[in-house]
Each structure stands twice: as C-alpha cells, then as structure tokens.
Simulated assay, not measured.
Amino acid sequence: MTTDLTALITAAREADVVIATAESCTSGMIAAALTEVPGSSAVLDRGFVTYSNAAKMEMLGVQSATLDRVGAVSEEVAQEMAEGALQHSNANLAVSVTGIAGPGGSEFKPEGRVCFGLAQRGTDTQTKTIDFGALGRQNVRAATRDEALALLFNAISR
C-alpha cells in the first residue's frame, strides 16, 4: 500500500472531509484499510458493498437503464455509485470502484479492468478506468484498493 493511511486520515480530519466508499470488486477493502488507522471514525461515515447489480440499484440508486446500456463495469456506473454514496450518507467525498478482478473477462471488458468514481459535494464527479491486466484476483483487488486510497488522498490534499 503506497498511500500513507495515517496522513490520509489526518488530512481528512483537518479539512473536515467525511468519506464514504462504494465498492463492488473490492468488497469493502477500501473501507477496511481506512479503519486500520485509529481515529478513522472521525472521517469515515460508511462503506457500501454493492457486489450485485441489485445492490447497486437499491443501496446507491444506480439506474437499471445505465446497467443495461453499458454494464456494471463502466465509468457511468462508477459515477452513479459515487454520487449515490454521497446522497445516501453524511459524507462530502465518496470513492467508488467497479471492475473485473478475475478470472475471466471478455474482449470488450478484460480481466483487470476497473472503473473508478470520485464524487465531492459541489464539484463534478471524476471517473477513470485502469486496465491493471490479468494480475490475478488478489492483486487486481489490492491494486484497486491502493488506487482508490490515492484518489481520496489527492482529492483531500488539493
């Protein structure tokens, strides 16, 4: 893990940032990493583990039309997940992840593809996709967690 979690929590506390996570392929790894730091309860409001499409829709308000049009592994769904995490929490910063950790994938959505969303109250939601490659399920999930933590840290440190 490259992001200094203590620095992230300290920076969030100093900036009055409250975080929510919306996780699919990581199943709570991002929230779990944040809570390894004593005092993280001051800045982590909640984590949504929305592995199924039904959970994405029910817990975060992801639109079924979006899922039907582009599939769960897409920047559009990552955006709706991050925005839904803000709407359904007391957070002012949310990160989301949805991807294919493996094994498997397709020619259009290969193993190791992960889409990220970063939503902050009062700003436009940012999205991006990273193709980590077929690193193996555990490594894709760890790389996804690390990238999400770096996105949070960068957003807080601006």
Rank of each mutant, 00 (worst) to 15 (best):
C25V: 15
T98A: 05
A32L: 00
L60I: 04
G71D: 01
S41V: 06
S52R: 03
A85H: 00
A22D: 03
Y51D: 05
A65V: 08
T50E: 05
S52H: 05
S41G: 11
A78H: 06
N90K: 07
S96A: 15
V70K: 01
R46C: 07
I100T: 00
E83L: 09
Q79W: 08
T35G: 06
K109I: 11
N53D: 15
V62M: 08
S24V: 02
E14F: 01
L86S: 11
A32V: 00
A15S: 10
A85C: 04
E36I: 02
G61F: 04
T21N: 09
S64P: 08
V73E: 02
M29N: 10
E107N: 13
G105V: 10
M81Y: 09
P103I: 04
V73G: 01
S74A: 13
I100L: 05
K109V: 14
R13I: 02
D68Q: 14
L44P: 03
T26R: 12
V77D: 03
S74H: 10
L44I: 11
Q87H: 14
V18A: 03
N92A: 03
P110M: 09
S24L: 00
F48K: 07
S41W: 00
L86F: 10
N92E: 06
V73T: 04
V49T: 12
E80T: 04
M57I: 13
S24C: 01
L67E: 14
A22H: 02
Q79R: 15
E83Q: 15
A42H: 15
A101N: 05
R13T: 12
T50V: 15
A42F: 14
S40M: 08
T26F: 06
Q63D: 15
V97S: 07
F48C: 08
T35H: 06
A54L: 04
T98Y: 02
G102H: 09
E76A: 15
Q79V: 13
L60S: 02
G28L: 10
T50F: 07
A31T: 13
N53K: 10
R69K: 12
A54Y: 02
G47Q: 09
V62I: 14
